[in-house]
Design a protein around this nucleic acid. Structure first.
Length: 284
DNA sequence: ATGGCACATCGAATGTGA
């Protein structure tokens, strides 16, 4: 990961919009239909500009639309039956929306990686927002793990292509990788555990080597902060979690980051997702 | 070390997740 140094001088605010911010959140909801009431409730008290959803588990035709219109949001979705699926929930119209790797990359490079709907991107206020649901990988000796590694390698090529257009990049989502040991409640002996192998971490680091840095770590260097807790064994009550949902920023956006916070509250609600939202605030 | 819980597809039991 590129470790963008903190700006040593305060960045002047544009005279036209003093103090203005843009807020972007990521949340793996583990089925948008099962979580609809919770997401609406959260948006009512957290009216972010853009909410990036993962694991919507629904086709675009069956994606529930009515609640968002009432809230003043619009939906851009890219889903499939039963598994995977991503969506952008936005207060303002998005531009240059594109679906899957194939929206940017040559089909020969994409291969079969778009059969699972895991990536959607758009422009918001000059920011290239990329919303991803990285494959879980199951276990290091499985075919799904090989798929995960291919997916991450292709993600690097994808972001490189966007960078060559001169775009400032914000990529967020469920990465299914704990970047270092601070991101796991008990990291010892996890080198063969999915989401924590050196190979997975290296693959993500190679993506970040394009010039992306972890927005959360700009503000919070210590461990013990998690975005996912297993449903089983009372993991949330015991705070036995992992930080696998991330916001990564190119240099120009990293300098503008004002806050990046995990909101653990929805994890305590009835019938929760096993993930909770992570909210990024950028100065304008 | 293992299992544990939740969701979708279905109309029971299984695949998947992390």
């Amino acid at each position: 990961m590129v470790d963008h140094p903190p700006a040593t001088l305060a960045t002047p605010q544009p005279a036209t919009s003093p103090g203005a911010t843009v807020t972007l959140a990521t949340w793996n909801v583990n089925s948008i239909r099962a979580r609809l009431d919770s997401v609406v409730r959260w948006l009512q008290s957290n009216p972010v500009d853009l909410l990036c959803l993962q694991e919507t588990k629904v086709t675009d035709e069956q994606f529930p639309l009515e609640p968002w219109e009432n809230l003043g949001y619009q939906i851009y979705c890219y889903g499939q039956k039963s598994y995977n699926g991503v969506a952008l929930v936005s207060r303002s119209p998005l531009t240059d929306v594109s679906y899957g790797f194939g929206g940017v990359l040559d089909p020969a490079i994409v291969g079969d990686l778009d059969q699972q709907k895991r990536l959607i991107t758009a422009q918001l206020q000059g920011i290239r927002v990329v919303n991803v649901y990285v494959p879980n990988g199951s276990s290091p000796d499985s075919e799904k793990y090989t798929y995960k590694m291919s997916w991450l390698a292709t993600l690097k090529t994808y972001l490189e292509t966007l960078q060559q257009r001169g775009e400032e990049i914000h990529i967020c989502g469920d990465f299914n990788v704990a970047l270092d040991d601070r991101d796991i409640y008990n990291p010892q002996g996890k080198q063969n555990h999915i989401m924590a192998t050196p190979e997975e971490r290296q693959a993500l680091q190679e993506v970040l080597a394009l010039g992306l840095a972890d927005a959360f770590r700009k503000f919070t260097p210590d461990g013990g902060h998690f975005s996912w807790w297993d449903y089983r064994a009372g993991s949330f009550a015991r705070n036995r979690g992992w930080r696998i949902d991330h916001h990564y920023l190119s240099q120009g956006l990293y300098d503008r980051a004002l806050a990046c916070k995990i909101d653990a509250e929805p994890r305590s609600w009835p019938q929760p997702s096993d993930h909770t939202p992570v909210v990024l605030t950028l100065g304008c």
